[in-house]
Design a protein around this nucleic acid. Structure first.
Ligand SMILES: [Zn+2]
Ligand SMILES: [Zn+2]
Ligand SMILES: [Zn+2]
Ligand SMILES: [Zn+2]
Lengths: 129, 129
DNA sequence: ATTATATATGTTATATTATAACACTTTGTT
DNA sequence: AACAAAGTGTTATAATATAACATATATAAT
């Protein structure tokens, strides 16, 4: 049984903001939102983000340089991530599909066994199409 | 039959450098390499990169903010990309796997049909493991 | 051939994203 | 208590990317 991780003050502040957000947040937009809470410098944000990513609490959307909360309890800590991204609005949805995940986790190429993957799908969401 | 695309001067310069490179190149490293050829500003690089991406001649490795030449003749112009990336050295290999590509191209979620995807696998390459 | 249209270029300035380095504090272990 | 590990605050700077504007070249119509 894994111990519930206790987050530090800054880590909790950053996670709260990302979890409350309706879409992906950028590091500097997080920074502007927490200056009232005494966080003043990008480093403080990036350090919290790095830790939260390692813990699997959030993920980075690489194509957007933005961060979303993980809504996926059985998400193998940042090892296998897939997202659907609307090219029109900002919507990002984490895909939780066991078949897809198994298929990709067991995928290997030229004897190279992968430790991790990130998959980003692009299209138009329901609202936008 | 699609007409072979004729590239502009700057586009050709940038493509040549990326094709010659053994690994992914970053925009500013391209810039430093072409200053002898009269290209002086990041804009000139980024504009060429944008066009080359649209043409499917190169791809962006989102997790590295770097660019690689497409070695894949049947690569559907930037619509379906997959890469294997070594976490130790800089090695990036474009994956050309018809089954994988078909599986992902036909993947859809909650009625959302995707137009495009990008998949990045991470691990250790032969040399590094 | 002349006009129109789209595409490309050159340039300066600036915005955005991310890390380095250092001094200090808090937390957990032995 | 002594030590090690993780977290904080801060200043400075590096790396990545775009805005805006003036001009030039290529392509396609008329
Ligand atoms: Zn997740
Ligand atoms: Zn949308
Ligand atoms: Zn390709
Ligand atoms: Zn390697």
């Amino acid at each position: 049984m894994t111990q519930a991780q206790i987050l530090s003050k800054n880590q909790q502040i950053v996670l709260d903001i990302i979890e409350k957000a309706r879409g992906p947040l950028k590091a500097y937009s997080i920074l502007f939102n927490v200056q009232k809470k005494g966080i003043n410098a990008p480093q403080q944000i990036y350090r919290a983000l790095d830790k939260l990513i390692k813990l699997g609490k959030i993920h980075k959307i690489e194509s957007k340089n933005a961060f979303v909360a993980c809504r996926n309890t059985d998400c193998e800590i940042s090892k296998a991530t897939a997202f659907s991204i609307c090219e029109n609005c900002e919507m990002v949805d984490e895909i939780s599909d066991t078949k897809l995940s198994k298929y990709l986790t067991s995928f290997n190429k030229k004897g190279m066994k992968f430790k991790r993957f990130n998959l980003e799908f692009f299209g138009l969401c329901k609202k936008c199409k």
